[in-house]
Nucleic acid binder design. Structure first.
Lengths: 123, 123
DNA sequence: TTAATATATGAATACATGATCATATATCTA
DNA sequence: TAGATATATGATCATGTATTCATATATTAA
């Protein structure tokens, strides 16, 4: 429990209390780039509408029109959100005529939803 | 592939294409309340700074001051973010004198981080 | 070809959010 | 007790975001 002059001291005006912990943990830091990517992934899951879309698509492949009906929201809103989910490769689409069918594009999404639901349940 | 007059038609101006899918899936919908809670959880994970804090606390229990030094950010910023994470019971704190030590308060957080990192890696 | 329909998207708006600054609170130390 | 220090927090501001509206695109049907 001693203060010191680690390199960091030169780049921010914060006191360092535990030298070893700071240097140890700093060496194992989450790379900034990974942090940013990971944040984007969770950000895609941070909206109730998008979560309801995902929860729906986990159960069935659904076209945009039906998705809007199921969630009782406008087609435009759903379409915008699907674009977001598509950009992060969380959902994929299949075009049939003028209809577009969306479905889940990643096993990880299922796990994330399950674990997330567990967390909010046992609270 | 037929349109129809399901109840939903009265509450939104969207055409329903697949009757059965819509009614089936609508019956298994994620409750609005659960969707909102789940969104809050993922929202807490949707910021690079908070993810770096969590990644740090997975490795060790760290005081606010050292956290700020490790992440090279202001004490105020870290403290605000910790409040956020605490509100969602993702981290817990232990007070010792004037220092406050934070650590992970949930096994689920570890799983969410791991699965998230898997997703962004194999892409 | 023309009208209808399913989806996508740009612009605008209202709202949420993260960092900073100033300052409050609590604890330690001299 | 007075000053220093670790943390918390309200206010502000700049930025990000979800929905809506209007409209574009693409496909089907008449």
């Amino acid at each position: 429990m001693s203060s010191s002059e680690l390199p960091c001291k030169e780049c921010c005006d914060v006191t360092i209390i535990h030298d070893e912990i700071v240097s140890d943990v700093q060496a194992k830091q989450l790379p900034l780039e990974k942090g940013n990517e990971l944040a984007l992934l969770f950000q895609a899951l941070s909206d109730p509408t998008r979560l309801r879309i995902i929860h729906t698509l986990i159960q069935a492949e659904v076209c945009v029109c039906d998705l809007a009906a199921i969630l009782e929201m406008s087609q435009s809103s759903i379409s915008h959100q699907l674009r977001n989910l598509r950009a992060l490769r969380l959902v994929k689409h299949r075009k049939v005529g003028r209809m577009v069918y969306y479905s889940i594009d990643d096993e990880h999404v299922l796990s994330l939803m399950e674990i997330g639901l567990q967390h909010i349940s046992h609270s």
